[in-house]
């Protein structure tokens, strides 16, 4: 998986959790919370959907890695690639 594919996976999850958000122009290097209306409940759901849909575990100490789309991709892509 490439980082771009990983960003797409994360955006798909956010689209499902927050269907009322416009995700057409999410900037990868700006915090998701600054661009979108996501609260801690939504971030918990992103983590749990990653586990449910893709078997990816994100320990609570790493939640900070999910701050922006870019940091999500940097953190998650190796995890996806390690799955196989």
């Amino acid at each position: 998986m490439t980082t771009d594919e990983c960003k797409k996976v994360v955006l798909e999850i956010i689209a499902e959790i927050a269907p009322d958000e416009d995700l057409s122009d999410v900037k990868p290097d700006v915090a998701l919370r600054e661009q979108l209306d996501l609260d801690s409940m939504d971030f918990l759901d992103i983590v749990m959907e990653l586990r449910k849909k893709h078997g990816i575990e994100v320990p609570e100490s790493d939640y900070g890695e999910l701050a922006s789309l870019g940091s999500c991709a940097a953190y998650l892509t190796p995890k996806f690639n390690a799955l196989v």
Partner: peptide, 20 residues
């Protein structure tokens, strides 16, 4: 109204995956 952010109604709809 739709589009108003960060309110309890929006939270429960998201958490329960129910659309407006």
């Amino acid at each position: 109204k739709p589009g108003v952010k960060g309110t309890p109604l929006g939270k429960i709809l998201r958490q329960l995956r129910i659309s407006r």
